[in-house]
């Protein structure tokens, strides 16, 4: 079609042309997968809930109504009430904020630290690599939840400390991922070319190697948010994470476990929230992997 347009000069064509960067292309691939988009919708729903929910559900999350203890779902209490007569819906909405921020913040922290360590280990190799990799190996030798419990017991129970613990246990996963990616990228000719141009190491690392090794990290990061939410819930359930009045989902499960038979809604809805959020992140992570995997490209 363009051969019929008279070429006055380059500008005409330049305006028509849309630049298709690698990220834009990935987004186009991502949109094709219905399942991935469904995952993203679930996540968006909970994110919006976390941001705007507290304005919608204004009634106090910790407001106890002893007269309405353990009420089943009704027009007044959509998801019922718990053993203190607190509205479960309000608590779940506020819990979304806690769970999502724990998930995102801990993953962001471990991605930043893990990427930095991984990129240094992968690029410089030799003893730097040996030291960093062995530390990762040691950390990975422990079951992650056990390590998290150990870290929380040292730092003391609480939501912030749970977040820190979850961030720490995820560092080696990202570190190893980035390291292996850097190992392959640093042999690519454009890295050689960057060196030949006379670029400094820092520029090569952060402007060339890092952006090119981000794709698997984004995938892993999305999936890790799901795990982090689960881990936070697990720590909350064990009483090591969120403390008493905080409406954290895992904590809510733990508090209501004795009412499983008499008032199942007290457990079902927090559990369902955890499940849906984790499912959303997993679906989106899978979709991202398909969209970003270089092997799927031509």
């Amino acid at each position: 079609m363009s051969e019929f347009t008279p070429k006055m000069d380059g500008i005409v064509e330049a305006e028509i042309e849309r630049t298709t960067g690698p990220w834009r292309e990935a987004w186009r691939n991502f949109r094709k997968s219905k399942v991935a988009v469904a995952g993203m919708v679930i996540i968006l729903f909970f994110v919006l809930l976390a941001i705007f929910g507290p304005f919608i559900a204004k009634e106090g999350i910790n407001q106890q109504m002893p007269a309405d203890r353990l009420q089943p779902p009704s027009a007044e209490y959509w998801l019922g009430t718990d053993d203190f007569g607190r509205d479960i819906l309000s608590r779940i909405i506020h819990g979304a904020r806690i769970s999502l921020s724990v998930g995102f913040l801990s993953v962001i922290a471990s991605v930043v630290v893990g990427s930095f360590l991984g990129i240094i280990a992968g690029y410089y190799g030799r003893w730097t690599d040996t030291i960093i990799s062995r530390i990762f190996d040691i950390m990975l030798a422990f079951p992650s939840i056990l390590l998290a419990i150990a870290i929380v017991s040292v730092l003391g129970p609480g939501l912030e400390n749970a977040l820190i613990a979850i961030a720490i246990i995820n560092v080696p996963n990202f570190g190893r991922l980035i390291r292996s990616k850097v190992l392959s990228i640093k042999e690519d000719e454009y890295i050689m070319a960057a060196k030949a141009i006379g670029m400094k190491d820092a520029r090569i690392l952060f402007s060339h190697i890092l952006p090119n090794s981000m794709a698997p990290v984004i995938v892993q990061g999305t999936l890790a948010v799901a795990t982090a939410i689960l881990e936070a819930a697990a720590l909350g359930f064990l009483g090591l994470g969120a403390q008493a009045p905080q409406p954290e989902w895992g904590k809510m499960l733990a508090d209501s476990k004795s009412y499983l038979q008499s008032a199942p809604w007290t457990m079902i809805f927090p559990g369902l929230s955890i499940m849906l959020t984790v499912l959303g992140f997993n679906l989106m992570g899978d979709g991202l992997r398909d969209a970003l995997d270089p092997k799927m490209k031509n």
């Binding site: 630049t19 000719e189 454009y190 050689m192 960057a194 030949a196 090119n212």
Partner: peptide
């Protein structure tokens, strides 16, 4: 001293314009 590389597909960073 500059260098021109063998593989034109690998010597340009795919994420840069």
């Amino acid at each position: 001293i500059q260098m021109v590389f063998q593989d034109p597909y690998a010597s340009l960073n795919p994420r840069h314009t």
